[in-house]
Design a protein around this nucleic acid. Structure first.
Lengths: 254, 254
DNA sequence: TCTTGACCCTCACCCGGCGTCATAGCCTAT
DNA sequence: ATAGGCTATGACGCCGGGTGAGGGTCAAGA
């Protein structure tokens, strides 16, 4: 009599979960060799072999149904199944490439918007292109990559509740700024809120003066952002941009 | 008052289904601007704009939840969302490449098995490598690509019932051969079943003598196939291989 | 012998992104 | 009035399991 294995043992040996074994049993993909009186599942060596094959095809992204078809009758077009599958993989591979390109283009466009804001709008006469380039470099080098990476990880780890909280905080600040639009962008009340806003932004990334200015420009250059702020109040985006510029120049002024 | 659009109109304009609009409404991703007394949904231009953005992110394979987060608060890390997403796309892209390579290797290995069967096993002394190569070419050219492609399409179109029927036919034939293992591989009864087997194989692909021989070899060389036939009877794979060889030489003999 | 803790079972709901009914109400044209 | 084309809601289904709940089983130690 050959060895027999419990669900847990098989799970541990193969690195899948017990639940998955239950699932494979239920859908008839891998039935245990024996069931004890008490309904315990016991697997034999053949079962393990079959499981290996199942996992092999799973690795290759075959569906469980396809896998079953192949294992139960490999003659039925084993090679062609592989070839067909290869085709579909190739398809998806191409798609991924396209998606990445599109994302890249979008990123470039946004980055372009920001640079444009700095370059063409003639708002920063004191900074020539060389300085801007140097600043870009500095941001890359100065803000310790480890810290940046860490803050990213933090964001990834944020719970949904934390996420919501922070979103609400942002909304409160924006709302407050909306109420202050009759004041000038340099009014103390406004600047107080902007200070909060800047602190809020720094929840997400280190944001020195020039970057904060750039962000303000982005608010009026990029429709996504503009639309968002217009929902609070008409022209809020422009107002914020101005207030943020003032704050960057007079308070942050790195 | 700006124009308003019914579900159907929006669906037709944007190329998605009405159901999808219902779904987006339910999950709060895209709420219609108005609901009539009778609960009919009416969308306005802003809704259409938002839908465009939703579809943009959908194109990029963002989840609806991510999309909602981005559209409802683009400030919350719009750029980083893109970058993170780019990472995950890149990951998947790499994975696809790997999968394709693995499939290719598997295909090569199988092809290798078959070639080995023809080349090393010294079973075909009459055919030198050159002839084998020529045969490979001929198969590629002779069997009208259109027909091959068509048969592939047919297999793809096969209903599940047809599929099952054909699988059963194959099992019946194999079973019958299992019962005949006490006869010689060249016995008339055996050869009769093998004839059926060959006809059955040609359901899937044109299978001239040499290919049929190769297939027989594959049955004993490739564990997938061997295991399958061993489940019917021990040594059935070897028996079939022999009988198939005999049939190829004496009946098909292209 | 009894208890503990690790293991096992089944049942059943959950995720995403909708497709696909079923059932019923509404609107318009003939 | 009747047909057909639109609309609504609600519920189940798909895939590949995750994640319990609620209860039974087993071996080892006190």
């Amino acid at each position: 009599m050959s060895k027999q294995y419990s669900v847990k043992q098989v799970a541990d040996l193969s690195g899948i979960t017990v639940r998955t074994l239950h699932h494979y049993d239920k859908i008839g993909l891998l039935k245990p060799a024996k069931r004890s009186q008490k309904k315990y599942r016991y697997y034999d060596e053949d079962n393990l072999l079959r499981l290996q094959q199942i996992l092999f095809y799973r690795e290759l992204d075959f569906s469980l149904e396809q896998t079953r078809a192949i294992l139960d009758d490999p003659v039925f077009d084993f090679v062609k199944a592989l070839q067909t599958h290869r085709e579909s993989l190739l398809q998806r591979h191409k798609r991924m490439k396209q998606l990445i390109q599109t994302v890249d283009q979008t990123l470039e466009k946004i980055e372009g918007d920001r640079t444009m804001a700095l370059k063409d709008k003639d708002l920063y006469k004191g900074f020539d292109q060389e300085k801007i380039d140097r600043w870009n470099k500095e941001v890359d080098e100065k803000y310790d990559p480890e810290k940046v990476a860490e803050s990213r990880r933090n964001i990834g780890k944020m719970s949904k509740d934390q996420f919501k909280d922070i979103q609400k905080q942002g909304d409160v600040i924006t709302e407050a700024l909306g109420q202050l639009m009759d004041k000038g962008a340099d009014a103390p009340e406004v600047q107080e809120q902007i200070k909060l806003h800047h602190a809020w932004i720094e929840n997400f990334y280190v944001c020195p003066a020039e970057m904060y200015k750039g962000l303000g420009q982005l608010y009026i250059e990029n429709p996504e952002f503009t639309a968002f702020y217009e929902k609070f109040k008409p022209d809020l985006a422009a107002f914020m941009c101005e207030a943020m510029g003032y704050f960057a120049d007079n308070v942050l002024k790195d």
